[in-house]
Nucleic acid binder design. Structure first.
Lengths: 100, 100
DNA sequence: TCAAGACATCGACGCTCGTCGATGTTCACA
DNA sequence: TGTGAACATCGACGAGCGTCGATGTCTTGA
C-alpha cells in the first residue's frame, strides 16, 4: 500500500471512526430507500441538533453521505461505493495483503 | 447497529484511521509470515523511532497487532480477525444494512 | 563487567476533534 | 408580510492525538 493510497483512505476511516457517526450511517442505510431525514435522526441521539448536524457534515465531506434538501427537510443517503471501498480494503486478497 | 456495537467498533476504526498506521499494517501483513521486525519498519518512514513505536502500540492496544519479542528484536503480526471484522461490517448484507 | 544496540516510555508541544449555546438561513403557511 | 420550524453555521471550550527529543529497560557480545 502506497503512501498516496494510505492518505486517500485514512480520511474515510477517520470519518467513520466515531460511535455516533457509525450509528448515523447505520440508521441512514437501514432507512427507507437507504436514506433518512435529519428530523428523524435528531431524536435518535441524546445530543444537540448542532452536534448531529456537525457529524452529518463530516460524513458528507468524506463522501460517505449524499445530501438532498426537500423543502424544509434535509435527507441524507449512504453512498455504497464509499463503504464497499473500506470493505474491499480489509478483505483478502486485498490491498492489505501480498505487498499491495 | 446498537450503541454498544458502535462503541466497540469505533476504536478499531480509530486505530486504523491514520496514514502511517495503515501503511504499518500493510507492511506487516505483506511481510514474511504476516509479520515484520520493528527494525525494518523504522526505515520505511521519515519519522522518529519513538513515533513508530507509538503507532505500533496504538495498533497493539486496539487488538490489531500481536507483539512478539525475540532477543533484541520485536516482531509485530497482524490479527486477521480484527481486519475481517471491519471488512464484514461494511459488506452487504452486514450490520450497516437491514436495520442491524 | 561494560558498552552498544533495539525498542519502549516519558514529558511536552501544537493541532485537531467532539460538543455545546447562540445565531443565521431558508422554507412553508397563515 | 410575518411567524415559526428545520437545518446549517459560528465561536468557544476541554480533551485527545501525532510528533518529537530525551531517557529508561533489556539483550547481546566483547
Amino acid at each position: 500500500m502506497s503512501t498516496e493510497q494510505a492518505e486517500q483512505i485514512a480520511p474515510l476511516l477517520k470519518a467513520l471512526a466515531d460511535p455516533v457517526r457509525l450509528r448515523l450511517v447505520s440508521l441512514i442505510a437501514s432507512g427507507e430507500g437507504g436514506e433518512a431525514c435529519v428530523c428523524d435522526l435528531n431524536g435518535a441521539f441524546e445530543l444537540t441538533q448542532a452536534t448531529i448536524s456537525h457529524h452529518l457534515k463530516v460524513l458528507h465531506n468524506a463522501g460517505i453521505l449524499d445530501r438532498d434538501k426537500r423543502g424544509v427537510w434535509a435527507y441524507y443517503a449512504v453512498r455504497p461505493e464509499a463503504l464497499s471501498a473500506v470493505a474491499n480494503l480489509f478483505s483478502a486478497p486485498a490491498l492489505m495483503r501480498a505487498g499491495a
